[in-house]
Amino acid sequence: MLALVSQITLVMLGVALLIALIRLIKGPTLPDRIVAMDLFGVLVVGFIVVLAGSSGVRATLDAAIVIALVGFLGTIAYATYVEGGDPR
């Protein structure tokens, strides 16, 4: 039962990733794309967490921690670039 549920969950997260990718490609302005990338990072973290929970490999959660951290730093860097000023 859990295998089926984890497969359904992964499919839903994959559809969410595809929708975020559509917004990333379409987005009319640069902040739209930044929002899409931020959502992309959070969805990838959720994907990895579901994979770790369903397969029982605990070391995969470390990768999720690293991806969450890098996604946050990337969002802050992009926002500083959009603001166009000195990084204070």
């Binding site: 839903m12 929708i19 975020a20 959720g46």
Partner: peptide, 12 residues
């Protein structure tokens, strides 16, 4: 996963 999908639909 439903909330994550709703977030993506909202972004779109």
């Amino acid at each position: 996963s439903g909330f994550a999908l709703l977030a993506a639909v909202g972004v779109l």
